[in-house]
């Protein structure tokens, strides 16, 4: 029983990271209809910013998260405004290829700057945790989950309660109609992508505290973002939160299957994603549009 509870807790904590990785990806996909293959690279940029600030200036990694968010927002805004906006009306494969190209450039420039060494962010409280009898809850993971939930709440607030958020929702509903009522599409698209990138940056900061990062470590996060978003369903932040936590649980239980070790976790996750796509394409909580 304690094992089971520990697994659930570990799964939910890991799910926090997936929520953070997934929300930005889901926003960009759901609103802009762009599958951003450079999402993992954006995550890793965030990770390196946190690592740089922590190792050079000894700033607490959780305090660097706003820096990640702002820096990636600006980067994402410029990326969308300068490049991705140019192919919005092209067939969908083009956005795949363009963002993959961007991914290639980012990853290899990071390799040129930082080399391929593993970097990790280890504040004084890493490795410690709350002990409840046999169950251990690591502080870093717990805070990360809290940050991920707060990030999702902030994103939901921006989308539902601010002027630009309403504009973004209008684009998601009908791009041409949104343009007709005077929404500056180029700007709104760039802001949306910037918000997605900012979420990726925060996710990267969290990931740097939990595992060592390299420039090439981002690709799995792009793939996991797919699974999270598909599991939850496109179009709502809350759905992505559920998808992320569900993915964390699936992975935790997948890793615990006796005999298989940790190796099947990925296969199970992707198998589940394909199953959900085929049987329930709108996701567990999504709405069909």
């Amino acid at each position: 029983m304690a094992d089971f509870v520990q697994l659930v807790i570990l799964g939910l904590l890991a799910g926090g990271i997936y929520v953070a990785v997934g929300v930005g990806f889901g926003l960009v996909w759901g609103v802009l209809n762009i599958v951003n293959l450079s999402h993992g690279a954006l995550v890793i940029i965030g990770g390196y910013i946190t690592w740089q600030l922590f190792s050079a200036l000894h700033i607490d990694p959780f305090l660097t998260l706003p820096v990640d968010a702002v820096a990636l927002f600006v980067f994402g805004y410029l990326l969308q405004r300068g490049l991705i906006n140019r192919i919005i009306r092209a067939p969908l494969l083009f956005t795949f290829l363009l963002t993959f190209g961007v991914n290639l450039v980012i990853v290899n420039i990071l390799l040129l700057i930082f080399g391929s060494d593993f970097r990790s962010v280890t504040p004084s409280y890493s490795g410690q945790g709350i002990e409840l009898g046999p169950i251990v809850i690591p502080y870093v993971s717990l805070f990360s989950l809290a940050v991920a939930i707060a990030l999702s709440a902030a994103l939901a607030f921006i989308l539902n309660r601010t002027r630009i958020g309403l504009a973004i929702n209008a684009i998601a509903a009908d791009r041409d109609a949104a343009q007709l009522v005077g929404i500056d599409l180029r700007h709104a698209y760039a802001v949306t992508f910037g918000l997605g990138a900012a979420c990726a940056g925060v996710a990267g900061g969290l990931i740097a505290m939990i595992q060592a990062i390299t420039p090439t470590a981002g690709e799995p996060y792009t793939l996991q973002a797919f699974v999270v978003v598909i599991l939850g369903g496109l179009g709502r932040v809350s759905a992505t939160v559920v998808g992320g936590l569900a993915f964390g649980l699936v992975e935790a239980f997948g890793q615990s299957i006796p005999g298989s070790g940790s190796v099947f976790a990925n296969a199970i996750a992707f198998g589940l994603m394909v199953l959900v796509l085929v049987t329930r394409p709108q996701g567990l909580l999504g709405r069909l549009r």
Partner: peptide, 18 residues
Amino acid sequence: GHYFAVASLGVGVAVGEL
């Protein structure tokens, strides 16, 4: 559209892992 692309990518990754 995207859903087919993503699902086929998922199959590709899952088969390799398996």
